[in-house]
Design a protein around this nucleic acid. Structure first.
Lengths: 232, 232
DNA sequence: GTCAAACTAGACACTATTGTCTAAAACGTC
DNA sequence: GACGTTTTAGACAATAGTGTCTAGTTTGAC
């Protein structure tokens, strides 16, 4: 059983017990859908995993399809909240840019890209996205779309401060994310969860290359030198 | 119906007609598995799409599972051959490095990452990879694993020639691929196929940033200037 | 034309799954 | 303790899919 840490806002006048059942169903359904995909998941399996009778599921969510969309919306809401919470920790200070960006990248990957919800969304968008264009269109806009422009705006701040020299902010944001993922894709692709060391190392590699590509005039000479020392 | 351009080596003493059926079944099965996933795909649907009776499928491949693994191996073989064919076109000359790398990236994405086989493998590894660890372990080693080290070796050549300044070749290769994918992931994630213009633009953006990050001492000043002109 | 192999269409048993229904039990509130 | 709501377990019909079998047809080689 997975336990949610954040207390969720009840949808209405539902009691505590009912709400607990709903949450348990949503969580178990998310895991089973993620493991087996939509057609591979059976209501019975979800019911067992949620410690709930099958009929209860049909009481809350009229049919399998309804349950699925409810699960996706639930996960998307949570992932979105987490994403913006992390985005608000984007480094703003001028000193230790590389370290601060690295720490930010670690937070981002750990809490948004490589956690349970991130894995679920990546997998489900890939496997069921074409069957539910409307549902995942909103994901596309609220998830990667928003993260791109939001991160772009944050990079714009750094650029205007002269810390980086960026011409296309949104492109830089996409490339930043891509670089961070470069070392993690292999691990994450088969369902594995990267260790803290791997996250740290991936973030460091990404940020170093990113800064080298977009170095501002002041900090240009500094990060080049240690890189030269490692040349084989 | 999709038509294969390359004549495939027959598995044995099978006649032409039998071979044609096999190919038709494999192709249709690949498409249906890709659309619906393993459990969502039905043998009947595959049979209809392949213009073949259901019994014929059971004659060639004993059961659904066998058919699935045969399809995956078939696609993997083809994708692998194409991959190494493209890798062999990695630029070796010293002039026009940026243009040559860009053209190479376009070839790579067009023929390996964004084509039918690439889409199939990405989707299937994501959705069924955990259920077939052995099958996709070989993919992991032969696909992304091989492409990483092979591309790393090619970048090592450029580095030793002094065209680029790279300390970790494999890392550079992974980052090169990640940057190329940065602009394409959004399109490719929901099953879309990027246009030639999008491929070209994605490759250009990626290569420009890559070269800026790993610029050798000689070519350092040149690519910086035009980028500055676009600063907003 | 003959013959063997492959293919087809359909029926078939079997299983899994969805979604409904019902009667009994648990639960929470008053 | 009574009452209404929710939950449960199980039976149930309906549907869809897998894999087998059979009888008839096509195909290709000689």
């Amino acid at each position: 059983m997975k336990n949610r840490n954040e207390p969720r806002a009840g949808t209405g006048h539902t009691q505590r017990g009912q709400c607990a059942k709903r949450i348990s169903i949503l969580d178990s359904a998310a895991q089973v859908f993620c493991r087996k995909g939509f057609s591979g998941a059976s209501i019975d399996e979800i019911a067992v995993e949620a410690c709930v009778s099958r009929q209860t599921i049909y009481n809350h969510y009229r049919e399998k399809e309804t349950l699925f969309t409810a699960v996706v919306e639930d996960v998307m809401d949570r992932a979105n909240a987490m994403l913006f919470s992390i985005l608000s920790t984007f480094p703003d200070k001028t000193d230790h840019l590389e370290d601060d960006l690295t720490a930010f990248a670690v937070r981002l990957t750990k809490n948004c890209l490589c956690n349970q919800d991130g894995k679920f969304l990546r997998k489900l968008v890939q496997s069921e996205g074409e069957r539910y264009p409307h549902l995942f269109e909103t994901w596309r806009q609220h998830g990667p779309g928003k993260i791109g422009t939001a991160l772009g705006a944050l990079f714009a701040r750094l650029s205007h401060k002269g810390l980086l020299r960026i011409d296309d902010f949104d492109l830089a944001a996409r490339q930043f994310l891509a670089l961070v993922n470069a070392d993690l894709q292999m691990i994450t692709l088969l369902g594995g969860t990267p260790t803290d060391e791997e996250l740290e190392s991936a973030a460091r590699n990404a940020v170093r290359t990113f800064i080298r590509a977009y170095a501002g005039p002041a900090s240009e000479a500094a990060p080049r030198t240690p890189a030269l020392a490692v040349v084989s």
